[in-house]
């Protein structure tokens, strides 16, 4: 009984703001040609999909998130393997360093990052955001992948090498399939910290390349069409919800502090 009540309270607490958003997204909040305020329907979604800058923002967000997740996994895997299998001079310092990078508040670095990236020509481009988000995602990816690799017995590596596999062939043909769930979980956590981030996304997109978060910001104005904003928000949730669904059975492996 207590359990059912607490679960019910949890469900209500989490869903309440989202329910309101979904309801608003199907309601016309601003009267426009032929549509009376308060009408229920899909017009907000139609308006969002008809706006080229909003469509572009979805593409921008998708590009930088995919790039970021790809980079974090590609650079994180070898690093995680090294940390899981070898001890070496400075390994703990490396772990401490990535912890510090993960915990450095983005706002602290925003100004020099902007100057550096404008010199490199990476402002207004999804590539810039993808790179800078590695600052907090790469450490998380390394932690998660390391814990998954550590769970694979050493003998697994040795057998593969005895069978004559070279380093890269072992990596791609043996290790990656075994720790695929770990890669999924790492991708999930990188996704949730990157897709919704606003500080770097704002300073690195001055005139173009705006991601979803900034496109939503730009929708607020003198007369904000709340229904349209909520429709955009609901659409922006879909990839996240899909990610949650894909990793649902492995998400509970989580990650722990290694320092």
């Amino acid at each position: 009984m207590m359990r059912a009540l607490s679960l019910g309270a949890l469900v209500i607490f989490i869903l309440l703001p989202l329910v309101q958003a979904v309801m608003l997204s199907f309601t016309a909040t601003v009267a426009s040609d032929g549509v009376v305020e308060g009408t229920i329907g899909l017009m907000n979604y139609a308006k969002v999909l008809a706006a080229p800058e909003l469509r572009a923002s979805m593409v921008n967000s998708a590009i930088y998130v995919i790039l970021n997740v790809g980079l974090c996994i590609a650079l994180g895997l070898p690093a995680a393997y090294a940390l899981a299998r070898y001890s070496f001079i400075g390994d703990r310092h490396f772990l401490l360093a990535i912890l510090v990078f993960r915990l450095t508040p983005p706002v602290v670095l925003s100004l020099p990052i902007f100057i550096l990236f404008s010199k490199l020509g990476l402002v207004n481009s999804p590539v810039g955001i993808a790179l800078v988000h590695c600052l907090f995602n790469l450490p998380v990816a390394i932690w998660i992948l390391e814990s998954f690799i550590r769970a694979v017995p050493r003998a697994f590596d040795e057998t593969a090498f005895l069978d004559g596999h070279s380093g890269p062939s072992f990596f791609f043909r043996h290790l990656i399939p075994v720790i695929a769930p770990g890669i999924g979980v790492a991708a999930f956590f990188c996704f949730i910290f990157s897709w919704v981030e606003v500080v770097f996304a704002r300073i690195l997109t001055v005139t173009a390349g705006k991601p979803i978060t900034m496109a939503i910001n730009a929708m607020f104005g003198f007369q904000t069409d709340m229904g349209m904003v909520m429709a955009m928000t609901c659409l922006s949730l879909l990839p996240g919800v899909a990610m949650i669904w894909f990793v649902r059975n492995n998400i509970a492996r989580g990650f722990t502090l290694r320092a």
């Binding site: 978060t213 649902r248 509970a252």
Partner: peptide
């Protein structure tokens, strides 16, 4: 768990 993870994927400014 999926329910609890839901707010994590909402854009921060929203």
């Amino acid at each position: 768990l999926m329910l609890c993870a839901l707010p994590l994927v909402v854009p921060w400014n929203m």
